[in-house]
Computed example of a mutant assay.
Amino acid sequence: MAHPIMFDEADPVLRRVRALALALPDAAEKISHGRPAFFTTKIFAYYGGSVKVDGSYLQHEQSVLVLVDLGEREALIGDDRCYVPAYLGSSGWIGLDLREDTDWDEVAELIDASYRRTAGPRSVAVLDARAPAS
């Protein structure tokens, strides 16, 4: 049974997340469980997520899910924009609601960090080679 599509292709927030994710070396997009998923060899970001509340799922339509390390997860979990997504939360993923006042530099950093945790060393080397010398 196929999952229903749970996003709007015309969503401007998705457009911004997609631009950030697909700008990374070897990144591609696929639909997984009805949501856009961005990957290289493994998924590094999802658009949209949910949490289970009293036996029902509460959807976070405009959010990005990323894989973070434990220290960063602890820091983010106290932020009212963040949530532990159903199914993926136990594996180190965190959801960040994207609002009008979203700091897109922060979103880019979180997507970059998640990418670095999942992409192969050659892809990460290509990304590092793009970085301007300081």
Rank of each mutant, 00 (worst) to 15 (best):
Q59Y: 11
C82T: 04
V124A: 04
A23H: 12
P25L: 03
A113S: 11
S90W: 02
A131G: 05
V68P: 00
R35T: 07
L88N: 00
V84D: 04
F38Y: 14
A125Y: 02
S56K: 15
D97M: 13
G34E: 09
A113H: 05
V124S: 06
L22E: 12
E61P: 06
D26H: 08
A45H: 03
S50Y: 07
R73W: 05
E9I: 12
V64C: 10
D112H: 04
Y83L: 03
L96S: 07
L24G: 03
V53N: 15
R18P: 06
E72G: 06
H3T: 09
L127T: 02
P85K: 01
P25I: 00
V51Y: 07
R16D: 04
V51C: 13
A28D: 15
V107R: 05
E109R: 15
R81C: 03
P85V: 02
V51K: 12
T102G: 06
A131H: 11
A75I: 10
H60M: 13
A131M: 13
V124G: 01
E29H: 08
F39T: 03
A19W: 05
W104P: 00
D69H: 12
P4Y: 00
D97R: 14
R16H: 04
D97N: 14
V17L: 03
F7C: 00
D8W: 13
M1R: 10
H33C: 14
H3M: 11
A23R: 06
I43A: 09
P36G: 02
L127S: 04
D97A: 13
Y83N: 03
R18W: 03
Q59S: 08
S114L: 02
L127M: 13
L76M: 11
A2V: 10
R15C: 05
T40C: 03
S134H: 12
P25C: 01
D80K: 07
E74S: 12
R15W: 01
A28Y: 15
S56N: 12
S50E: 13
E109F: 02
D97I: 09
Q59P: 10
D105L: 13
V84F: 01
L24E: 02
A27V: 14
V53I: 15
G92M: 06
G120Y: 01
M1K: 06
P85N: 02
Y115T: 00
Y83E: 04
H60W: 15
D69G: 07
M6C: 02
K42Y: 02
S56E: 15
D80Y: 02
L96Y: 14
T118I: 04
E72H: 10
G71C: 06
P36K: 00
D128F: 08
S91C: 04
A23E: 13
L22W: 07
A21Q: 12
A28K: 15
A23Y: 12
A37G: 13
W104F: 14
D128R: 14
